[in-house]
């Protein structure tokens, strides 16, 4: 890549906007995923009985079942949330930046 293109892009305010928005968003979602997963792992490590509590009196199903499924769904949902914003808002910004140096 030409050095002047790099400079031009870096000086574009939209580039700064893209970077700060996207990295804040990406890392936030990453931290949410880490908290959900390691929260789950730490419960298993320190208080496994918590997950074995029944969903209601007389029921066999433990609260660990819906919680486990919810962790799986949260992983899928978080990727969906990221794609929804990245493929519209962030890509629009990216295209504007790319057009500006053409």
């Amino acid at each position: 890549m030409q050095p002047d293109v790099v400079r031009q892009v870096k000086n574009n305010p939209k580039y700064q906007e893209l970077i700060s928005k996207r990295s804040a968003f990406g890392w936030t979602l990453a931290v949410i995923m880490l908290v959900i997963y390691y929260g789950f792992v730490l419960i298993i490590a320190y208080d496994p009985a918590l997950l074995a509590i029944k969903t209601s009196d007389g029921a066999v199903m433990s609260i660990g079942m819906p919680i486990g499924v919810a962790v799986i769904i949260s992983a899928f949902a978080l990727t969906g949330i990221y794609v929804a914003r990245a493929n519209t808002e962030f890509d629009r910004l990216t295209n504007e930046i790319v057009e500006s140096v053409k």
Binding site: L29, M33, A75, T79, Y82
Partner: peptide, 8 residues
């Protein structure tokens, strides 16, 4: 759970 991290 590695997949969302790969994504982000």
């Amino acid at each position: 759970v590695g997949w969302p991290i790969i994504m982000f």
